[in-house]
Design a protein around this nucleic acid. Structure first.
Lengths: 113, 113
DNA sequence: GTAACGTACAACCAAATGGTTGTAGAAACT
DNA sequence: AGTTTCTACAACCATTTGGTTGTACGTTAC
């Protein structure tokens, strides 16, 4: 079963933009298998807490992660559905490419009947 | 068979960054099924030739397309291998997420022997 | 109650991005 | 030869990005 992708250009922009940064990709990775708080995440990176928090905001606006406030902490969880959607987009491209090959095939078939 | 992905952070940055723009995604789409010249591509978009040319440069540096000079024109072809690599990265994330689920499963299994 | 912790957010700054126009050169057409 | 076409690239500009520090506020711990 294929994941339904009804994404606007802006949404796709935000998803790929969010993934175009190594720190943010690492945050996605970590939050796929755990639910760290923002300050826990910040310990891993050589930058300020505020910088990490801004990365989390970018990921949240791309819907790649969701935040859940737990007392005074904010737990971060990756959203695999958004990842699957991004993959679905790339799948469309690959299918397009395969269609080119089949078009070429049928063209060759026409040329040598 | 899985596509081998030995990509540096910078390379991944460039790939996702290149895909984070609707015009560039459209160029990729078009060059998957055809090999237009840059000026042909430029006709589709409400921007200058130079702007389109710069988009092509961004895609080329991400290895998402390759240029081939044909006389005085430059033909643009998408590189589906790079697309497959990007998909491979997202696949890794999904696998990571699935591993979390199985970890949780085994944890539950431990708790209720 | 007070101190410490975790988060949010504003203001600021340097660098990158996405667009523009202009110039120059190679290839093709007459 | 001269003109047109296509491409490359520089210079410039406004906006966005990715980082910083500082401040404020709710929650937890003593």
């Amino acid at each position: 079963m294929v994941v339904e992708t009804e994404l606007t250009d802006d949404e796709v922009d935000r998803i790929f933009r969010a993934l175009a940064d190594a720190t943010r990709r690492d945050i996605v990775r970590r939050t796929l298998t755990a639910q760290p708080s923002i300050s826990e995440l910040a310990e891993y990176y050589a930058m300020s807490f505020a910088a990490v928090q801004k990365h989390v905001v970018v990921l949240e606006k791309a819907d790649l992660i969701t935040k859940r406030t737990q007392g005074r902490t904010t737990l971060v969880t990756a959203n695999p559905v958004a990842i699957a959607r991004a993959k679905g987009l790339l799948d469309k491209y690959e299918q397009l490419w395969h269609s080119r090959v089949t078009q070429l095939d049928s063209l060759l078939a026409q040329e040598s009947p």
